[in-house]
Amino acid sequence: MGFEPKIIAFCCHWCAYAAADLAGAARMQYPHNVRIVRLMCSGMMHPEFVMDALSQGADGVMVLGCHLDECRYRDGNYRALDRSDMVVELLEDFGYEPERFNLTWVSSQEPDKFVKAVTEMTVRIKKLGPVNDVQG
């Protein structure tokens, strides 16, 4: 068996999580490597979650939120965007490849985009290989 990465995807309840539901209703098929954690907003994502996930063996972490200017809570996704820069810096400091983190905007009506994002992420992580055992 080849390497099957584990990917944690933080999904906004209003957009990406709904898109994932819709992908199911449309019977779209995608890799089984993603485990979704539902948040109320991508702006709820704390950098600590990303670091936690990687240190516990996740090979990749995704954050999926609403398109900019379409946030349910006005500008939560802009906060997620700001924070993701911080996350990338943190990853580098801790010796993780920044490609292990991904931020994608998906509306509730775009199951195809959701499927594309998780498929591409899985391919990318498979190429990168398992997460390094870098501990602080």
């Binding site: 948040l39 709820m44 924070r83």
Partner: peptide, 26 residues
Amino acid sequence: KGCGICQGSCPKRGVYITGFTMEQIS
């Protein structure tokens, strides 16, 4: 409105969202 943007930006765990606490998500 319980969006949790505060929780996501707090460096000290000084604010949490009921139903979506740091503990629950971790």
